[in-house]
Design a protein around this nucleic acid. Sequence first.
DNA 1: ATCGTATTTGAGTGTTCATTCAAGTTAAAC
DNA 2: GTTTAACTTGAATGAACACTCAAATACGAT
Lengths: 197, 197
Amino acid sequence: MPRQPLYDRQRALDQAVQLFWQQGFHATSIKDVERALDMRPGSIYAAFGSKSRLFQDALDRYAQQGLAELEAQLQSHASPLSGLADYLRSLGGLRDRVVPCRACMLVKSLLELGERDAAAQNQADRLLALMEARFVACFEAAQEAGEIATTQSPVRLGRRLQAEIMGLRAYAQRDVDATALRQLADDMAVSIEQLRV
Amino acid sequence: MPRQPLYDRQRALDQAVQLFWQQGFHATSIKDVERALDMRPGSIYAAFGSKSRLFQDALDRYAQQGLAELEAQLQSHASPLSGLADYLRSLGGLRDRVVPCRACMLVKSLLELGERDAAAQNQADRLLALMEARFVACFEAAQEAGEIATTQSPVRLGRRLQAEIMGLRAYAQRDVDATALRQLADDMAVSIEQLRV
DNA sequence: ATCGTATTTGAGTGTTCATTCAAGTTAAAC
DNA sequence: GTTTAACTTGAATGAACACTCAAATACGAT
């Protein structure tokens, strides 16, 4: 077994996430990737296969980290409903934090990619479905804990929440001030809390 | 004054809207534009200046038509609140209608474009602000008509509605069935109607 | 120290990109 | 019918694109 790769796959993917998240798939060139990962084209293609496959790996890593963040928020609250409300409010602070991009990378990809890049678009869709499933599970837990009425549909609530977050984060990409964004997130959080019986 | 252009500017722009709306800015080449507008590169550049300026003109036309659609919906209802609710429900049918793309072209552009294409991104932002202003005016009218409580803030309601529509139409881009989308739009419409005192 | 092999390198591949422009074409004005 | 200026054409431009590969390199095993 001679030689291990010099690059750190995890670190490289993190750089790729940052780059693609910021610029999108089509506006990012392999030249950009070379700079960001400090790798030469041959190494990049040996390690990741193609620009599209690297992008899909980056999507995976992004989603995994996003899901972990949500999980952390939820774990820090006894009530699922409060956890979700707090998660929304934390997204309201998106203007203050330093992030590669305010909009969600999955949504950016879903909207940017077409049938020509079907593989990556399906990947984005699948990862968004994963997120939505977590929201649904959360509302189911809230229902079992007696937090929300049994007449409510966890599936519909989860769907609605995902759509709201997609909207919130797309809105965050607009040229609006931090207060407006915080108010918007707060209004959404209040809607969640009002589900409480 | 010799010779008028053979092409019809309006028609050409409509074709451009369809093309860019579907594929986005970066994934659309001038070759694509040549085919869609049935114009040769020289004519395209004489008429529109550059790919970026053509895109901005297309954005303008898209927004103008979108605003007109909203206006038509509102005119067909005596109540502003009902008009907005119906507008949302009509967006819920996005899966059934044949459209170039389910997501909003302004949002797609806002998310796709970066600082490199600042002019077009600002354009998208400005046009979204125009839409939001119309929503705000609608809630103000509803308030003056006594439909919603005076404690509500039309600015916040307008912002929220825009974010919801951004989310709804981004969600519509996902691989979900028509029923799910109609339910989502309906849930949002109900939220609007529940503002009624 | 030497060997064997996986990794790295960077010049090079052919293609496609947005854009230009000189030459050709056309219709209005007289 | 001639003039004239705007429009149209399409080959040509250089740059940027994703990707390849033969050669150089460096590490683990012996």
